Amino acid sequence: MLVPSCDPPSRTDGYGVTDARAGWGKQLRLPDFFIIGAAKAGTTSLYDMLARHPGVFLPSRKEPEFFARDDLYAEGIENYAWMFDPARPDQLTGEGSTLYSLSPLFPDTASRIARHVPQARFIYVLRHPVERAYSFYIQLVKNYQNATGDYVVHRRFEDFVLPEFHARAAPRAKVLAPFNAHFPDTPELCLAGSDYLMQIRAYLAHVPRERMLFLKFEDFRRDREAVTKRVCDFLGLPPMEGHPAEAGRRNVSRDHFDRLGEQLAMDTLRNRAGLLWKFRGMLPTSLRQRLRERALARAPRVEFLHEPPAMLPETRALLEQRFAVQIPELSQLTGLDLAEWGLDLPRDQMHPTAVLDANRFPALR
Rank of each mutant, 00 (worst) to 15 (best):
E210D: 14
L291M: 09
A358I: 03
L296A: 11
L162Q: 09
L318A: 09
R209G: 04
A354F: 04
L72C: 07
A192I: 06
A317D: 02
D159E: 14
W24K: 10
A110F: 04
I200N: 03
D48S: 09
R69C: 07
E158A: 12
E158M: 03
L356H: 02
T12Y: 14
A265W: 07
T43Y: 05
E78V: 01
P346D: 01
Y80F: 13
P8Y: 15
E340W: 08
L283Q: 07
I77T: 08
M1D: 15
L237R: 01
F257D: 11
T43A: 07
L275D: 07
Y47A: 11
S101N: 04
S253M: 12
I138Q: 08
V152N: 05
G242V: 02
G37L: 02
E164S: 00
R209H: 13
M212H: 07
R29M: 14
R155D: 13
P328Q: 09
L50F: 07
S103E: 05
Q321A: 11
P129F: 06
L72D: 00
F66P: 01
A147I: 11
V141R: 15
F157H: 11
E225K: 02
S111R: 11
L162R: 15
G55C: 10
T18F: 10
D255M: 06
L72Q: 04
K62I: 01
D32L: 05
V325D: 13
L50C: 03
S101Y: 02
P313T: 01
F179L: 12
H53E: 06
D357E: 10
H306K: 15
R347I: 03
A247Y: 10
S103I: 05
V325F: 05
L46T: 03
R250N: 07
L283F: 12
K229R: 10
F67K: 00
E307F: 07
P309M: 10
R209K: 02
P59R: 06
Q289V: 11
F57A: 05
Q263M: 14
D258Y: 01
K229A: 07
D185W: 15
G342S: 10
T334C: 03
D348T: 08
T18K: 10
A358G: 07
Q119F: 04
R290W: 09
T148N: 08
R290V: 04
F84R: 05
K40D: 14
H182S: 13
V56W: 07
P54Q: 15
R132H: 03
L204R: 08
D159H: 05
D85L: 15
G16K: 14
L345I: 08
A173M: 01
V56I: 14
Y100D: 02
L50K: 04
P8L: 13
L296F: 11
L291H: 01
R52L: 12
E329T: 13
L319I: 00
S253N: 12
M266A: 08
D159R: 03
P308R: 02
T186E: 13
P239W: 08
F279T: 10
F217G: 01
S103Q: 02
F122L: 12
T93A: 14
G42N: 09
Y196H: 07
L333C: 01
V227M: 14
R52P: 00
E188Y: 12
V252Y: 08
M240T: 05
L264D: 12
L336D: 06
A299E: 09
A120H: 00
G248Q: 09
D7T: 11
N79H: 09
